[in-house]
Design a protein around this nucleic acid. Structure first.
Lengths: 334, 334
DNA sequence: TTGTAGGCGTTATCAG
DNA sequence: CTGATAACGCCTACAA
């Protein structure tokens, strides 16, 4: 069923059908009704691909997230809210999971596939393994989230981790903590480097001595957090408070603590990052640094839309983290 | 940059370029090299939309999940594995989140949008609110996951909850439990009805008295689980063991227990459903009924592919749940 | 206001 | 084996 068949049945030309479909106001109301009747009757729906081809616009965006997202609820929300924003603006979303761990070029592969699909823009939310794209030939507007340096001609929604870390450290210092540890993700990821740097700056601002030995570079996963916390606890003088590179790692850390009969918020202070819905349901409820997938997805989408529409006024966007106080912190324990 | 421009630069006809792109073997090797050189040089990529239009195949599938998935890691894995399977077969995936709570017709709206995009098939993984689609005019193959009855002309990957529930109940009965409670999701969802029915059957098989008063119909969310557990604990004679409609609700229940100074695996037996990665990291590690998003996504994708290719031999597919023993159960407490 | 003709980028069917 | 030519379904001047 196509536009010509509708035209035949409604005894008009296919142009008229096209006009009716596109709500062109200059069509005779009687013809509109006649055409619409046929359309409704046969349940006709315009072919988006043909439309895109003729108009030269696909009304589709690409969204690349990292495959590690699998177990991490953060990304599922990013996808949800990005998609929702897109649909509101009449866009569709092509999602790709880039296997950035084992295939360094996978982001580029995904981007290339999307480009074949004529996406009008691509949002890259892999948080730290995106530099590889700098050299590959992508011809459509791209927006990154959380890249550590602005690539030429590419928009980047910067993540400002400092406010969150600063208030977190301030909070710990008020409790009297001086030995503050950190469960870092792999520092080969730029987002992990940024978090690490923000922590250092926050500690400097607060005037706390930064001890490199209290940093465990693990993996921003459940298991990674569990292992990292083991490492910290096995130190001759373990930290009295620990920040984590994300909530998932923090929950992993909680397991290790439990295994040793320790309680966050009582024996040790623990702080996560992301503010997953889960945080409200751990024992104790996890104090964290908010990094809202909802807001971030909205910001990235807006940035991409502006790029595509050419209405971009701002040259850089920023997402500010903030500290969320719950129950997993406490004063240092002797 | 299009096929004609490549042709001009390589001094051949666009047909030849098309043949080179499509690896037609009968082309003169010298021409192949010449064309390929130009393609590489200008970084040309074929326009998938035009291709789809000409071929009459979009190589795209639609995947509809429920919007509630936001906070629930289960769906993020479903999307990941479905997409991965699709890409392996040369398909792309259009994901939609259906807001089935507040917009009863949203699944149909999403499906319609996908149809305009010429998807070759649609997978509906909303687990229980899909009946509304029975009457809407979708012209492409569809596969459901976990619908409670087989709709005409529509494939359904049945979820067999019984094995998981049967072994779970058996396990509890061996511990000596007789007062077994259940935290159900809304029974207006067919998947929740199916779980409920499977539980009843499992208890019948085990010869345990089924007490309707020990069932709390809440919501399959973190908060829902927390509230439901409150209801059960407030009963004059609370259950000694509780099964939950999913892991997220179980984690919510854990919070309520903690708030009352009770411990799963010590004071009360608690069993979830889904086997999220998170289960290994709760305190105690959550015993659960496995419902693997990975396997399910693979099964649904295969079913859809078979439908589309017309190679479907099986008329029904089944996913079997299974019991996963961890540490959140114990003998009943006096 | 309506219809005709041409084009979007590709594939497919023919002769040559 | 190659190259015109005609689809695919739609949009859009331009002409009527």
């Amino acid at each position: 069923m196509n536009i010509r068949e509708i035209a035949r049945r409604a005894r008009v030309s296919h142009s008229t059908v096209s006009r009716v479909i596109n709500q062109v106001q200059t069509v005779d109301p009687r013809l509109v009704r006649r055409v619409q009747a046929v359309i409704d009757q046969v349940g006709y729906r315009p072919n988006f691909q043909a439309r895109a081809l003729a108009r030269g616009r696909s009304h589709t965006f690409g969204l690349i997230v990292s495959e590690l997202s699998g177990g991490n609820p953060f990304f599922s929300e990013v996808i949800l809210y990005f998609e929702r924003a897109a649909v509101e603006q009449g866009y569709e979303v092509l999602v790709s999971f880039a296997d950035i761990e084992t295939r360094p070029d996978h982001v580029a592969v995904c981007a290339a596939r999307m480009q074949e699909r004529q996406v009008e823009g691509i949002a890259v939310m892999t948080f730290g393994m995106e530099e590889q794209l700098a050299d590959c030939q992508i011809q459509v507007p791209m927006v990154y989230a959380g890249a550590d340096h602005d690539l030429p001609g590419v928009r980047n929604v910067r993540i400002n981790y400092l406010p969150g870390f600063r208030d977190a450290i301030k909070h710990l210092v008020e409790f009297g903590h001086q030995r503050i540890g950190y469960l870092s993700g792999k520092l080969s990821w730029s987002s992990m480097r940024m978090r690490y740097e923000s922590l250092r700056r926050a500690m400097k601002i607060a005037g706390v001595h930064f001890d490199k030995n209290l940093v465990a570079e693990c993996d921003h996963t459940w298991d990674g957090g569990a292992q990292g916390m083991s490492v910290l606890l096995n130190l001759p003088k373990p930290p009295t408070a620990v920040l984590c590179c994300n909530d998932v790692a923090a929950v992993g850390a909680l397991k290790t603590l439990a295994g040793r009969g320790l309680h966050a918020g009582k024996d040790i202070a623990l702080i996560g990052l992301d503010d997953l819905p889960l945080c409200r349901f751990t024992q104790p409820a996890l104090t964290t640094i908010q990094f809202s997938p909802h807001e971030l997805a909205g910001l990235v989408f807006s940035a991409l839309l502006e790029q595509v529409q050419g209405t971009a006024q701002k040259t850089n966007y920023e997402y500010k983290t903030r500290f969320i106080l719950r129950e997993s912190t406490c004063a240092p324990r002797a």
